[in-house]
């Protein structure tokens, strides 16, 4: 019981995710700044921001629905942290795993988007409403290719559990190469979930101030920012666990180091994409997702089904 509490709250649970999330935000901002020839923030900047936000006053608009406004960020944070429990980090076994936890994790990762939408909608501010509607429209665009990309390795592994997928590919490492298209589709579609350029339409600063987060301030805003940071780590770990499951049999220390390297390289690639691409318009983004990403994901699914058939 005590061991379970330690695992969930400290390592590799909440505290580890907290520290790693804040460090990843620092890394992302520093790399972004250096690529633009600037200096960038010092290492304690995200922690300082968090502390400052916790000390500020919570302003709730008069016409907003207080219940939803207050609880939406908390729901988002909880679902993100919960989904981390099912992802294997340095071995092939996650903290808790069961057959079907891949679907559960993907569902739990959709929940923050819905929670942000509800929080923004019930803010009743004009900008917040436009931003939250954009968030849901974006969800329709990237969700389908994202789910297809994540589910295609599961077809070959013949199991719906992330830990099971991990151990399958550990045993047959060459099959990782078949899933490369899905890796590409997942990395592009996940920019929509994380709301990073070129898909950062819901939080377009120059058009609608801050989108769904406009009316948030103080402690609730701190929870929102923490959710966004943690989401980055959770999604990067999920991609590393499903598409890059190599080097998992070398024991705990080396496995953990490899995991860190994988996640940090993914964060670096996301920061690079953020730097060199402009923001797309909503209709352009939906057109792009449905015209290019969905066919690619379908091709990957077909390839995997054929490989499954050949293996039999």
């Amino acid at each position: 019981m005590l061991k379970a509490l330690f695992l969930i709250l400290i390592f590799p649970g909440f505290l580890f995710l907290f520290i790693f999330g804040l460090w990843a935000e620092y890394f992302d901002r520093k790399v972004y700044a250096r690529m633009q020839n600037r200096v960038g923030p010092p290492w304690f900047q995200p922690l300082a921001d968090m502390i400052k936000l916790l000390a500020k006053e919570n302003l709730i608009p008069e016409e907003a629905n207080e219940l939803f406004f207050r609880w939406a960020p908390v729901v988002a944070l909880t679902s993100v942290v919960t989904s981390f429990m099912y992802i294997p980090l340095w071995g092939t076994k996650a903290l808790y795993s069961f057959n079907g936890d891949l679907v559960v994790v993907l569902y739990l990762l959709t929940l923050p988007t819905i929670a942000f939408f509800i929080g923004g909608w019930y803010s009743t501010s004009l900008f917040a409403r436009i931003g939250s509607v954009r968030m849901i429209s974006q969800l329709f665009a990237y969700e389908v290719p994202l789910l297809m990309a994540f589910l295609s390795p599961a077809i070959i592994a013949n199991t719906w559990s992330i830990s099971g997928i991990s151990s399958f590919y550990k045993g047959h490492p060459l099959y990782i190469l078949i899933n490369l298209i899905a890796l590409f589709v997942a990395m592009v579609a996940v920019q929509g979930k994380l709301e990073k350029a070129p898909f950062d339409i819901p939080e377009a600063e120059t058009e609608i101030v801050a989108g769904g987060f406009t009316e948030y301030s103080g402690r609730l805003y701190a929870i929102l920012r923490l959710t966004i940071d943690m989401e980055l780590i959770v999604v990067a770990s999920l991609i590393a666990a499903i598409f890059l499951p190599f080097g998992l049999g070398y024991g705990k220390i080396i496995g953990f180091a490899l995991y860190l390297i994988k996640v940090i390289s993914l964060v670096f690639i996301f920061a690079l994409a953020r730097t060199v691409l402009a923001r797309l318009r909503l209709d352009q983004m939906i057109a792009f997702c449905w015209q290019y990403l969905v066919p690619l994901a379908l091709i990957q699914v077909l390839i995997n089904i054929m490989v499954m058939g050949l293996l039999k």
Binding site: Q36, N37, R38, A197, D200, A204, T206, R279
Partner: peptide, 16 residues
């Protein structure tokens, strides 16, 4: 213009 379309890198480079 770069900043308005969300392309902050262009902003930083041209102003440098």
């Amino acid at each position: 213009a770069g900043h308005e379309i969300g392309f902050d890198t262009l902003l930083m480079y041209t102003w440098r």
